[in-house]
């Protein structure tokens, strides 16, 4: 049971990483980051079955912080959209690099 959950969370995390690295739309990248965070939550909950409540508490912190991060992140995406009329990172290149 534990091994399956850990494997599943590793797969989810990898999908998230691949999404971040290959997609160019800021909102989709952000969704992929959220997927990575949820993969982490899954491992925490799985490990918490073996070790007790600490892992579950950690998950609550992660969810709360992810919500705060989403609020700030979407605000930043909107701020950028007002300037550029796009959220595609390929068209956003004022800064070299």
């Amino acid at each position: 049971m534990l091994a399956e959950a850990i494997f599943f969370s590793a797969v989810l995390f990898t999908i998230g990483v691949i999404g971040v690295l290959t997609r160019r739309n800021a909102i989709i990248i952000f969704m992929c980051v959220e997927l990575m965070l949820n993969a982490v939550n899954l491992s925490f909950v799985a490990f918490a079955r073996a070790y007790g409540v600490a892992g579950q508490i950690f998950v609550f912190f992660v969810m709360t912080v992810a919500a705060a991060e989403a609020a700030v992140g979407l605000a930043i995406i909107i701020a950028l959209f007002r300037h550029k009329q796009t959220v595609n990172l390929q068209n956003i290149n004022l800064l070299r690099g």
Partner: peptide
Amino acid sequence: PRAAESAM
């Protein structure tokens, strides 16, 4: 716009 891009 540069600051917005940097923040993003």
